[in-house]
């Protein structure tokens, strides 16, 4: 009995010591992260960035994979609130239906950072801020690059993403808006390749039969479709990047490699590495500093001038 008491005593002492030590080290931040799922390479890179950056900063990250379902994400956020985390990061799978759970977080005074896609709420104060990708700007940057580098080429075919998706809508709209300023350039055909490599190839095959040598420029809403289109162009006996200019968006490793190889002329980055910016923002919120209501990740254009230098540090 005495030995048991002794053991209990030393355990209690140890526990107090531990507690004191962690308190002295300024309690590590606990962040709950409700991710949509793992539906694409972009998403995987996004998750990895959040995890590795948390590790680097000594942040205790609680990760919840929503597996593509809003109900899973709502449950995850609710759990984070119950656990009393310091901040919640939410990458919403859809735009609506978040109010009740966001209200719970607000009541518990836990700031919520919305990542990547937007949410619609009647009360803006339900979340701290939005940090996302600027799809519109990406489309505009692609058009600007073409306007600057197309030379005498003018006829464009467009490979759209999945109809109705925010990325496809914004990238299409921005491109069209930008082209309106350059009357020399025009889109002669536009179809959806569904963001898939196979889709890009199939649509490009049909375009090549329909328009033949008229096609001078390909604008693809993502790298995968551009990579599929390259195969179709090569099978038609043409040289991608030379006979036909190719511009796409995303800048996955393979896409940047294609730029190095001269098969894609330019890719506009859609940076999934949100980690640093997200945690910087959370630190600011925790310190009581003001943060921007909505801000965007900085994206760059990668073409033959900088691709070789950037390919080495490509993480995704």
């Amino acid at each position: 009995m005495a030995s048991l008491l002794k053991k209990l005593g030393s355990f209690a002492a140890g526990a107090t010591l531990l507690f004191a030590a962690s308190a002295a080290l300024a309690k590590p931040l606990t962040v709950g992260f409700a991710q949509t799922g793992a539906e694409s390479a972009w998403r995987t890179a996004n998750t990895n960035s959040m995890k590795s950056e948390a590790e680097k900063r000594g942040i205790n990250l609680k990760f919840a994979d929503g597996q593509g379902k809003q109900e899973n994400q709502i449950r995850a956020v609710r759990t984070f609130v119950t656990q009393g985390v310091d901040a919640i990061v939410l990458a919403p799978i859809v735009e609506t239906g978040w109010e009740p759970v966001l209200r719970e977080a607000k009541r518990a005074k836990i700031p919520v950072v919305i990542m990547d896609r937007k949410v619609q709420t009647s009360d803006e104060s339900l979340y701290a801020c939005f940090i996302g990708s600027d799809f519109y700007k990406e489309g505009a940057m692609a058009a600007e690059w073409i306007a600057k580098n197309a030379g005498s080429r003018s006829k464009i075919v467009e490979l759209q993403g999945t109809p109705g998706s925010a990325a496809a809508n914004e990238r299409r709209k921005a491109f069209a808006d930008e082209l309106a300023k350059n009357p020399a350039l025009k889109i002669i055909d536009s179809q959806s390749g569904d963001f898939r490599r196979s889709g890009g190839k199939e649509v490009m095959e049909a375009f090549l039969k329909k328009h033949g040598k008229d096609i001078e420029i390909v604008y693809a809403h993502n790298d995968d479709m551009a990579l599929g289109a390259i195969q179709a162009i090569e099978e038609a006996g043409l040289k991608p990047g030379k006979d036909i200019l190719i511009v796409s968006i995303d800048a996955i490793k393979e896409g940047v490699q294609a730029v190095v190889d001269g098969k894609i002329n330019a890719v506009v980055e859609c940076n999934p590495l949100f980690g640093p910016k997200i945690y910087d923002t959370i630190a600011k919120i925790k310190a009581g500093e003001p943060v921007e209501r909505s801000s965007y990740n900085v994206d760059i254009v990668i073409d033959s001038t900088n691709a070789a230098a950037l390919i080495g540090q490509r993480q995704y």
Partner: peptide, 14 residues
């Protein structure tokens, strides 16, 4: 056939 056609296996979308 699908993987061979695009010379890649896209496990999400194939």
């Amino acid at each position: 056939m699908a993987a061979a056609n695009i010379r890649a296996a896209d496990s999400y979308r194939m």
